[in-house]
Amino acid sequence: MSDQVQTPRAPFGNFPTVRLALDASADLVTPVAAALRDWADREAARSVLWVDTDPEKADTAVFCAAYEAPPELSANCVVVAAKRGGETTLAGCLVLATTRLDVNQAVRKRLGARKASFAPMDTAVAGTGMEYGGITPLGLPAEWPLLVDEAVAAAPSVLVGSGARRGKLILPGWAVARLPGAEVVPGLAAAVEAV
């Protein structure tokens, strides 16, 4: 029997460094590290991997090419502002990178809003405590709804931001569905038509 600790392996892609996210708290922004530490579902928390990546390659298309990550297993966390009666509700929406979030119908109706739109960058950054281009569903404010497209929850594993432009998180779809406050929503996103 060996006393060596087994290094975790990413389920896809070619990443120079792969660690359990729980062991990478020094590389995570405060809200993400706290969310992992405090996640009541320890099985889900232990399933999250952190992979080191170049922040200059954070754009989805560039990233997927550089790290051999399949776009259909990459997910984007989008912050949406929903308005009704003078009140604005911010929400996180998680969709596959190969799809487009249905803000005007699915999100607006699910949040009971008169109008819904992508939140301005400064609002998203200030509200999450994360870097733009790295916003992740882990560590969003507890009062925000987190809408997850059913395709993300059904994926074997998905790659999401880490809260910073450097590094990404990989976690199973079932763990995404167990994130605090997450609601899996059928039809939240539609496939992007090829041009």
Score class of each variant (00 low, 15 high):
Ala44Ser: 13
Val48Pro: 02
Ser162Thr: 13
Ala26Gln: 15
Ala175Cys: 04
Val184Ile: 05
Ala155His: 12
Phe63His: 15
Gly134Cys: 01
Thr53His: 07
Ala97Leu: 10
Pro8Gly: 04
Ala82Arg: 10
Gly173Ile: 04
Ile170Ala: 11
Gly85Asn: 14
Ala61Asp: 15
Val18Met: 01
Pro120His: 03
Glu72Ala: 14
Gly161Asp: 02
Ala97Met: 10
Thr128Met: 00
Pro120Leu: 06
Pro16Lys: 07
Ala182Asn: 02
Ala155Trp: 11
Glu68Phe: 05
Gln6Ser: 01
Val62His: 13
Ala58His: 12
Asp23Ser: 09
Leu22Ile: 11
Ile170Phe: 05
Gly181His: 11
Val176Tyr: 03
Ala35Tyr: 13
Leu159Lys: 10
Ala126Asp: 01
Ala82Tyr: 06
Leu94Ala: 12
Gly163Glu: 11
Asp23Glu: 12
Pro186Leu: 02
Pro186Cys: 06
Leu94His: 10
Val79Asn: 04
Gly86Tyr: 09
Ala24His: 08
Glu193Gly: 06
Val18Ile: 02
Leu111His: 06
Tyr67Ser: 13
Gly173Thr: 08
Ala154Lys: 06
Arg46His: 15
Val29Tyr: 06
Tyr132Cys: 08
Arg37His: 11
Ala175Ile: 00
Leu179Gln: 04
Phe63Leu: 15
Asp54Val: 12
Ala33Asp: 14
Arg178Gly: 05
Leu96Trp: 11
Tyr67Phe: 15
Gly187Trp: 01
Cys64Glu: 07
Arg178Thr: 05
Asp52Met: 07
Ala66Cys: 13
Ala75Phe: 07
Arg165Ser: 01
Ala142Ser: 09
Gln4Tyr: 05
Pro31Thr: 12
Gly187His: 03
Leu146Ser: 02
Ile135Glu: 01
Arg42Asn: 02
Ala194Phe: 07
Val79Thr: 09
Ala40Asp: 14
Lys115Cys: 13
Ala24Asp: 09
Arg166Thr: 07
Ala124Ile: 02
Leu159Tyr: 12
Ala33His: 12
Leu147Cys: 04
Ala142Gly: 04
Arg84Leu: 08
Val95Gln: 03
Pro70Thr: 14
Arg165Ile: 03
Ile170Lys: 12
Ala61Leu: 09
Ala65Ile: 03
Ala177Ser: 05
Pro137Arg: 01
Ala175Thr: 02
Asn76His: 09
Ala66Val: 14
Asp38Ile: 05
Trp39Ser: 14
Gly112His: 08
Gly133His: 10
Val80Glu: 07
Asp54Glu: 06
Ile170Thr: 09
Ala177Asp: 00
Ala194Tyr: 04
Ala97Asp: 13
Val176Ile: 13
Leu20Ala: 07
Val51Pro: 07
Asn14Arg: 12
Pro11Asn: 14
Asp52Phe: 00
Val158His: 06
Arg100Cys: 08
Arg37Leu: 13
Val95Ser: 01
Ala44Val: 04
Arg114Ala: 11
Thr89Pro: 04
Pro186His: 03
Leu138Val: 15
Val32Ile: 01
Val103Lys: 10
Ser117Gln: 06
Asn76Lys: 13
Gly181Val: 09
Cys64Ile: 09
Asp52Ala: 10
Ala113His: 01
